[in-house]
Simulated assay, not measured.
Amino acid sequence: MRILLIEDDADTVAEGLTANGHVVEAVDEGPRGFLAAASGAFELLVIDCMVPGLDGLALVRRLRAADVGTPVLFLTAMGGMEDRVAGLEAGGDDCLPKPFALPELLARVEALGRRARHGTAETALRCGDLEMDLLRRSVTRAGNPVELQPREFQLLEYLLRNAGRVVSKAMLLEHVWHLRFDPSTNVVAAHMSRLRGKLHRSAAGELITTIRGAGYRLGPPG
């Protein structure tokens, strides 16, 4: 994917994206970033909210006013809900609070690229009484909020996107942890156990079933 990175300290992020097959152009201040983004030459914009010269929120508002619809992933040092909502209301498609791990950045980039390729503005995933809001990065079950850590959120998102299908440990390691081998760890089982506990506390009935020797399946109880 061709990505424009508008960030005044871009080296680490640019190296991580490039190492994973993306073509990255980095700009370290807002006005030049706006001109580059307005060219329409990029498939994704990754923008620091506090980029100098023209802050990220104002930059994206100008882009949207100019009918530039390129997906935007905001990077923000302010991780509160109000800050994330401000980014989305400015025209962003997703917000990633700093500090973040590279696998989470890559997962967000892949998700935005996938949405852009399929031409869909999907904002929510549902299975039974479970709902995930992809814009607000929130989860509810039977109307009750479920507080998840970033990796738990990614894990549940993958299960929701494959609801009704059995997903193996290897699939989860590859798509959630970005590992293409089995490191002989119980990381999947440990995260799955915590996720199950949180979902079960919010409503009666298990949603995640273990399929012995095969993996896991997300689906309504019974």
Rank of each mutant, 00 (worst) to 15 (best):
R2G: 14
I3M: 04
I6G: 13
D8S: 12
D9S: 10
A10H: 15
A14F: 12
E15Q: 15
T18A: 11
A19M: 06
A19V: 00
N20T: 08
G21V: 00
H22M: 08
V23Y: 08
V23Q: 13
A26P: 14
G33E: 00
F34I: 00
F34D: 00
L35F: 08
A38H: 12
E43W: 01
L44T: 07
V46G: 03
I47R: 04
D48T: 00
D55V: 03
L57Y: 15
L63C: 05
F74E: 11
L75Q: 08
T76H: 11
A77D: 10
A77I: 04
M78Y: 12
M81F: 15
R84E: 10
R84Q: 12
A86L: 10
G87A: 10
L88P: 10
E89P: 00
G92Q: 05
D94V: 01
L96Y: 04
K98L: 12
P99N: 09
P99Q: 08
E104V: 09
E104A: 05
L105Q: 03
A111L: 11
G113I: 01
R115Y: 08
A116K: 12
A116E: 07
A121E: 08
A121D: 07
A124K: 10
E131T: 14
R137W: 10
T140E: 10
T140C: 08
A142Y: 04
V146P: 00
Q149R: 15
Q149C: 00
P150Q: 03
L155R: 02
E157N: 09
L160H: 06
R161F: 07
R165M: 08
V166A: 05
V167F: 04
S168C: 01
K169W: 00
W177V: 00
D182I: 06
T185S: 15
V187M: 15
A189M: 08
L199H: 03
A203K: 03
G205F: 00
L207R: 01
T210P: 06
T210G: 08
R212A: 12
R212H: 06
G213V: 10
Y216F: 15
Y216A: 02
L218W: 03
G222I: 03
